[in-house]
């Protein structure tokens, strides 16, 4: 009699039906479990620092938490973080406007119009910009804006420098998101005779919104968290930000985290942890808001 394998391959003769209750060989089961375990371990390794940071910051900041920290300006005796919080918010808002406009515009150009050589050059340029260390960009901003244009330490110098730092991320994610938009949407818009910009605004960009928002979120998170470029461009002050473009330094939270922690007084060390907590909460609120925006925009989206 021929071997079972031979008969099943030829399709002729009687073949043993596959046993539905037969367990796969132990080797395969072991490999399966090991794979799962590795994934879980990786997840835990990623989650552990997050939990540790939250624990450290919240655990240290909450016991002595005073709500007036949020609006009191800093004094030589301690005070609050009012001016730093406002400063960070103003800088971040400026970055959203400047880097958001430039980044989304570049992303649209890269995905819709830049083809061949020009596209490659622009894309490479944008990637190089994204790869430059932030402190180098800070120094460039210092030379060009603070010294070169005589703006001194100022809001303008700070938010332009941070915008140069973050715009490439927004451009990249916008371009990637636009490329994911199904061709059928573009064809449908073309077949209706829609103007390209109209189709971009109403259909393509809307379909790409989750990706665009993710890019903005990364950019804003960077802008909230950066310190090095701001040391060169924003300077620091305990005063409330004046909202003037030039000649007036701005206070910001990351500076408070770093400087106050190195002060001998307990009051300032507590302020340092308060600042860290405010930063963490800001980022969390930002993520929640952007999720809500994406969910609202995507309520008519195709689900695959």
């Amino acid at each position: 009699m021929a071997s079972p394998a031979a008969t099943s391959l030829s399709g002729a003769g009687a073949r043993e039906p596959l046993d539905l209750y037969g367990r796969p060989p132990w080797r395969r089961r072991a490999a399966d479990r090991a794979g799962w375990a590795a994934c879980l371990l990786a997840l835990a390794l990623m989650g552990a620092p997050l939990v540790s940071v939250l624990w450290g910051v919240v655990g240290r900041a909450l016991p002595g938490w005073r709500w007036d920290v949020l609006w009191q300006p800093a004094t030589s005796q301690g005070g609050g973080l009012g001016s730093e919080i406002l400063g960070t918010l103003v800088i971040v808002a400026g970055v959203v406007v400047v880097a958001g406009t430039v980044g989304i515009g570049s992303g649209i150009f890269l995905s819709e119009y830049a083809s061949g050589m020009a596209g490659s050059v622009l894309r490479a340029g944008s990637e190089v910009l994204a790869g430059i260390p932030s402190i180098v960009l800070g120094y460039v901003g210092y030379l060009a804006l603070v010294i070169g244009l005589h703006w001194q330490f100022s809001l303008g110098a700070a938010l332009l420098t941070l915008s140069v730092l973050t715009a490439p991320y927004i451009a990249k994610s916008t371009e990637a998101a636009l490329r994911q938009v199904p061709t059928s949407y573009r064809e449908g818009a073309d077949a209706l005779g829609m103007a390209p910009l109209h189709a971009m605004r109403r259909i393509t960009l809307k379909a790409a919104l989750p990706g665009v928002v993710t890019g903005l979120l990364i950019a804003v998170a960077i802008a909230i968290g950066e310190t090095a470029p701001l040391l060169y461009t924003a300077g620091f002050t305990d005063n409330l930000p004046s909202l003037r473009w030039a000649h007036n330094p701005v206070g910001y939270l990351t500076y408070a985290v770093w400087t106050f922690y190195n002060q001998p007084s307990n009051v300032f060390q507590d302020l340092s942890f308060d600042a860290a907590l405010v930063l963490v909460v800001m980022v969390l609120v930002l993520i929640a808001v952007s999720r809500a925006v994406v969910a609202r925009a995507g309520r008519h989206a195709e689900r695959n």
Binding site: E187, A189, R202
Partner: peptide, 30 residues
């Protein structure tokens, strides 16, 4: 203008990611 006079329907239905009413109105608005 040409495509407004010569319309097209595709092999696979391709509604836009907007409400049913807005889909009907897409070209009207454009």
């Amino acid at each position: 203008a040409l495509r407004r006079r010569v319309g097209m329907v595709f092999q696979r239905p391709n509604p836009f990611p907007m409400s049913i009413a807005d889909n009907v109105l897409a070209g009207v608005k454009a």
